[in-house]
């Protein structure tokens, strides 16, 4: 972007300064507070669900994550389908996007959106339109981190 800025004509730069003055700023602090509370609330619900699985099913703290994540994604699917999650997202921002429910929402909203183009080309082809890059870079960074850990272990650092 920095190089592009230089390519602008003086007229463009002058206009952008003028425009900046009128541009409504994001209320960053307010958004952070909202995100903190809603994100925390979602995580508290997740914690309650994982305790539920520990109490009533054979899950230990180590592997209770799997059913909990599945449940949270299911809940976010319901909320997305009922049209609640996008409103929550507008209110909470990162608070509802960062937990796994946000990932579920990204997958499901795309699936709903492209239902009209059929199951194969529509739902199948577009379901991971938004979430695909999360999966790709998530897997890739996990690979890199695992590689570093293995190498460090081999050299005896860890």
């Amino acid at each position: 972007m920095a190089s592009k800025q230089k390519n602008m004509t003086p007229q463009q730069q002058k206009y952008q300064q003028l425009q900046q003055k009128h541009e409504l700023k994001r209320p960053v602090l307010k958004n952070c507070i909202k995100a903190f509370w809603v994100g925390g609330l979602i995580c508290a619900v997740g914690q309650a669900i994982s305790y539920f699985y520990i109490y009533f099913f054979h899950f230990t703290e180590q592997n209770v994550g799997n059913p909990t994540v599945a449940t949270m994604v299911f809940l976010s699917m319901l909320l997305t389908g009922f049209g609640v999650y996008d409103r929550l997202g507008q209110f909470a921002g990162a608070g509802s996007a960062v937990p796994v429910t946000g990932f579920g929402n990204a997958v499901i909203s795309a699936a709903i959106e492209h239902r009209t183009e059929g199951f194969v080309l529509g739902v199948g082809g577009n379901m991971f339109k938004l979430a695909g890059s999360v999966i790709l870079f998530g897997v890739f960074s996990a690979f890199v981190v695992a590689l570093i850990k293995t190498l460090l272990g081999m050299w005896g650092v860890l």
Binding site: L24, K25, R26, G89, N105, S109, A110
Partner: peptide, 17 residues
């Protein structure tokens, strides 16, 4: 929205602009 932005039900936050 479908064409230019995100799916309708996607919970992304839109800026005030």
């Amino acid at each position: 929205e479908k064409q230019f932005r995100y799916p309708t039900e996607y919970g992304g936050q839109k800026p005030p602009t």
